[in-house]
Design a protein around this nucleic acid. Structure first.
Lengths: 206, 206
DNA sequence: TATATTAGACAGTGCCAGTATCCAATTGCT
DNA sequence: AGCAATTGGATACTGGCACTGTCTAATATA
């Protein structure tokens, strides 16, 4: 199909498709002439994935590109894909392992959970920053406070990986990994918020 | 203290503080003259909260203002605060209850969990959109897939509310509610990602 | 042949968070 | 009193980002 067809089917303006091509999010179509290219089903699927990551998940174009590159590069090795999607390995550049304030706390948390986590995982920094913020705001939250949350996170991860195993639909396993790790995030937060509303109503008699 | 002192203590440029004043995120100081105002400890605390919400959590200025207004308006009624923070009630305008595609699925999920959730909760829309995205991408995810996640979310919410109960530090309970519901979100996602990395390593022998 | 479509390059748009500049009023210092 | 430094407040500007519009030469289609 040509770009107008792709645009119609995906409901993404062709100007935007061109933009994604330019940005390297979407691989170029098979060029049939100087001003003509042919796009296939894979392009449509990837386009929908891009839209999901950007519009639903709110990733930046850059972040989306990195995720997509990881997916197409290591399609066969699930752990590699997950590692790259999760940002566990430095994708290209050699980022320094984080030594900012709060890292000892994160190390303690990880050790307590018995987790093996890459030094480069950006999740480490996120935890550290959150703890730092909470502390500077005067709460008594420490890494110990997070332990029960970490236990629940672990159960969630087990669910996630189970989903990956018994998957055999039209989507590749690599793409499915992306969907589960990244796209499910806002939904999980939404579930938590609803559960909070429910629990709050129970306790305060709303 | 005056603005320069506030800026020094909070490490927020005074131009930015003025911006927050303009935007109504920070209440004006006690004016002592036409070009002089006095700021107190409360301003410093709120400023840190604003920075946490915007920089750590990534909220927009508008979203931050709504959250802060909710906090200062209903400080005493915890369930009200939570409701507003969670967006459960239409803050000012009369938003229509969501009838978009996917709402039946969300209703089924909520019913299955036995939850009482406001019709206006934006979380409903988030779930619906996620399910819609996942479906259009060809996965076999349905609302039933989310049930085990919802159970874990419920346990998380119990933890959250427990935190709120035995709180008696320098932060008001209302502020603490905000911190727990909003600021903890990226940390919870980070925990999930680390747990995924760990679990993936276990299964694939990383 | 006439009209429409396309790839690709490049400039422009709209939004948003934050900065910079200016002014008149006030303060602290001498 | 006199004068540099600071402030509140208004207004204009910046930079980043995700597009979006315009143009051209080449092609497709009727």
């Amino acid at each position: 199909m040509r770009i107008s067809e792709l645009s119609r089917l995906s409901r993404v303006p062709s100007a935007t498709i061109k933009f994604y091509l330019r940005e390297g999010l979407l691989p170029p179509g098979q060029a049939t002439a100087a001003t003509q290219a042919e796009y296939g089903e894979a392009h449509l699927r990837r386009l929908r994935l891009i839209r999901a990551l950007i519009a639903v998940r709110g990733l930046t174009v850059n972040a989306t590109r990195e995720v997509l590159n990881a997916v197409s590069e290591y399609e066969t090795d699930m752990h590699q894909v997950l590692g790259l999607v999760l940002g566990a390995r430095p994708v290209d550049k050699h980022e320094e392992p984080d030594d900012g304030p709060g890292t000892p706390d994160v190390n303690a948390l990880v050790a307590q959970m018995g987790w093996q986590i890459s030094e480069y995982a950006p999740a480490r920094r996120v935890i550290a920053e959150t703890l730092e913020s909470l502390r500077s705001l005067g709460t008594d939250c420490t890494w110990r406070t997070l332990i029960p949350y970490a236990e629940l996170a672990q159960q969630t991860a087990v669910l996630d990986l189970d989903q990956l195993n018994d998957a055999d639909d039209s989507v590749t396993r690599a793409e499915r990994a992306v969907l589960l790790t990244v796209l499910l995030e806002p939904a999980l937060l939404a579930l938590r918020r609803m559960a909070q509303e429910h629990e709050s109503a129970l306790r305060h008699g709303g």
